[in-house]
Write a protein that binds this DNA or RNA. Structure first.
Lengths: 333, 333
DNA sequence: TTGTATGCGTTATCAG
DNA sequence: CTGATAACGCATACAA
C-alpha cells in the first residue's frame, strides 16, 4: 500500500515479483494481444491482486485511456417510472459492454453547471439528456467533453448530437382534439412544473384550431408529487365552473385526476374525461384504466445502441430517432 | 487543442503566453496562497480560458489531488420520493462545498460489482448506501476506496463507516401491535420486493408476541409500481377471507391499498385499516390521509454533514446516527 | 510574480 | 514473454 491504504498496481507488482507493466497486461489489458496467455506468471499476479484486494483506479485509467466506461443519465427530479425504465434498459445494454451507468440529477437550473461537472469536466463517455432538460440546458460544453450525446428534444438541432424526437406537441394536440370532438366543453390542462412548454403548446394549438380560447382558470400548475396534484384537481372540481375533461402533462397527474374524481364522486369518463401523458405501464392497471399520450410501448434499445455506436465512432453523422407518441385509448377518455 | 478537441490547460497556457503552472494557479488553485492576486496576468489567463472553453479534466485533477469532489447515492430501483428528498438535500449541502452528487442504481445484486465500479474503483469521495442495499452488499471494497461511507442499516457494524439506525423492525412491530390492540383480526402484510426482511420481521414479531400465527395467505409480495400493488390488494379484498387491516412496507403500497379499497367500496378505516411505511409528505394529502411508520419528518442534514465531516477527516470515529421511526397517526388507521 | 520539475496510477510502445 | 520508459492532464514544492 502506497499512500492512503489503497492498493496500487505497484503493490501488486512487488508482491508478485514482476513489473507493473506485466501486471497491467494481465489484469486489465484485454487478452486480444497476439500473445495468448503467459500461464505461469499470470496466476501469481492474479493471486497477489486478489490477496491485496486490488481494485484499480478509474482516474488514472481514464486519464491514460481517454475512456471512463461510464455513461450518465441527466434528469430533472422528481423521478418517475419512465426514468426508471430508461435507466434499467441502459444498464442492461451497458453492462454487456462493460459500462456502468450513473444518474445526474439537475434540480436547479441556476446550479446546472455545478451538477453537470461530471459531464463537462469529467470523463463520461456518453450522456443522455432527458426531456425537459434537453431544451433548457446549453449542451455545447457537454458535447465537447463527451464522445456521445443523446437528447430527447423536438426542437434541438446540434451538430454531433443524436436526438430523439417525440412529436410531443402534435401528440398533445391530437389528444386535445379528440376531447373536443367528443364534445367536451371545458378542458383543463394540468402541468407539471411549468417548463414542459411543448406539451402545453399542443393543448393550445388544438383549442385554437377549434376556434376556442384558452381559459386561464383551467390551466393549473400541479405540484411534483401525485398527492399534491390531487389537491389541485380537487380544487378545480370544487370550483364554480368545473372542467369536464383534464389533459395532464404526465400520467402521474392523470392518476391524480382519477383519484380526485373518485374523492368527489365525479364519474369518469362520463362527467370527467382524463388523459395522461407518458403511457406508463401503470396506466393499464389503474381504475379506470388511463387513456394516455405516449410511446405505444417503452423501448429504448435502439436509442441506447445509437449512443454506443457514437461512443465507438464519434464521427458518425448525427442521427434523428423517431419515437412517436400516439394516443393510447383506454377507459378514462 | 491537443488531441480530440478537448481544451487542455496547456492550450490555455499557450494562448495566454504563460506557463501551465500559472494557469493552474489562477484557475483552480485556491487563492489561499500567500500571494493575493497577480492582477495583470490573471485576466489574460481567464480570458483565454473562457475563449477556448476550458473545462478542466476531472480524471487528471482527481488523480493528482486524490479528490473528486463527488459523492454518490447508491440505491435500488424503483425510485421513490424518499430518494428524491435525500438527493436534493445532499445536493444542497454538497453544492455549498463545491461538490456534485450522482446516483448509482443497483438493479441486480448479481451485477452489483459492475454497477459499483464508480465507487470501488472510481474516485468518489463519499457514498451513501440507501436502506435495502446496505444489508445486501459487501461494503468492504467500497470502504477501502472512498474517504467516507454512510449506510442506512439497523444491523451493519463496520469499522470506519457511519451508519444510520432507523429501528425499522421495532417500528413495524409497534404499528402492527397498534392494529392488534385496535381489535383487527386479519392483518395483511404487503411487501415490496421480498428483501426488506427487517420490516417483515417487525410484523412477525408483533403477531407472535400477541400469540398469533402468521397467515401466509395474508402476506403478499407487491410489485414495484403503485398500480401493480393495487392489483395485489384487490386480489386480497376479493378473496374468501379478506383482511381487515393492511400493513405496507411502503407508502406507495399504502396508497395502493387505499385505492383498491375505494375501487371495491371497502370503507377505510372502518372495514380496512391501512398503515404505510416511509411517512412521505404525500401521506398527509391522500384521501383519507395515510397513517404511516417513518421518520416524523424527513431531514437528512445531520447525516450529510456527518458524511462531509468524514470526508474532511477519515480518521473520525464511526458515528451511529439515530433517525427513529415512529407511528404517525392519521385517518387511515 | 512566474516558471521548472516531479509525480499521481495506469496503459501503450517498444526493446531486450 | 517480460520489463523499462514515456505519456495522459493537472497541481504542487521549489527555484529563479
Amino acid at each position: 500500500m502506497t499512500r492512503e491504504g489503497r492498493t496500487t498496481l505497484r503493490d501488486v507488482a512487488e508482491a508478485a515479483g514482476v513489473s507493473v507493466a506485466t501486471c497491467s497486461y494481465v489484469l486489465s489489458g484485454r487478452a486480444d494481444r497476439t500473445t495468448p496467455l503467459p500461464e505461469p506468471t499470470r496466476k501469481r499476479v492474479e493471486d497477489a491482486a486478489r490477496r491485496l484486494g486490488y481494485k484499480g483506479n478509474t482516474a488514472a485509467r481514464s486519464l491514460r485511456r481517454q475512456r471512463s466506461e461510464l455513461i450518465a443519465i441527466v434528469y430533472a427530479p422528481p423521478v418517475s417510472p419512465w426514468l426508471d425504465h430508461l435507466t434499467w434498459e441502459c444498464e442492461d445494454i451497458a453492462a454487456a459492454r462493460g459500462y456502468s451507468v450513473i444518474g445526474v440529477p439537475v434540480r436547479r437550473l441556476d446550479r446546472a453547471a455545478q451538477s453537470l461537472r461530471v459531464i463537462t469536466r469529467g470523463h463520461v463517455d456518453g450522456a443522455i439528456f432527458t426531456p425537459v432538460l434537453s431544451d433548457d440546458l446549453d449542451l455545447t460544453a457537454a458535447r465537447r467533453s463527451t464522445r456521445a450525446l443523446m437528447a430527447f428534444s423536438d426542437s434541438l438541432r446540434m451538430p454531433g448530437v443524436d436526438v430523439v424526437r417525440n412529436n410531443v406537441r402534435t401528440a398533445l394536440a391530437e389528444a386535445t382534439t379528440y376531447l373536443i370532438d367528443a364534445g367536451r366543453e371545458r378542458i383543463a390542462y394540468l402541468s407539471h412544473t411549468g417548463v414542459q412548454e411543448d406539451r402545453y403548446l399542443g393543448y393550445v394549438d388544438a383549442l385554437e384550431q377549434a376556434g376556442r380560447e384558452v381559459d386561464p382558470a383551467l390551466v393549473r400548475v400541479g405540484a411534483a408529487s401525485r398527492e399534491d396534484a390531487v389537491l389541485v384537481v380537487r380544487e378545480l372540481l370544487d370550483g364554480p365552473n368545473p372542467p369536464d375533461a383534464v389533459v395532464s402533462e404526465s400520467d402521474r397527474g392523470g392518476f391524480a385526476a382519477l383519484q380526485a374524481a373518485a374523492d368527489r364522486g365525479v364519474k369518469v369518463p362520463d362527467d370527467l374525461a382524463v388523459i395522461g401523458t407518458g403511457n406508463t405501464r401503470e396506466a393499464t392497471n389503474s381504475m379506470p384504466s388511463l387513456t394516455s399520450v405516449g410511446m405505444h410501448q417503452l423501448d429504448f434499445t435502439e436509442m441506447v445502441e445509437a449512443l454506443f455506436a457514437r461512443i465507438d465512432d464519434p464521427t458518425l453523422p448525427a442521427r434523428e430517432l423517431l419515437m412517436p407518441w400516439v394516443l393510447n385509448h383506454r377507459a378514462s377518455a
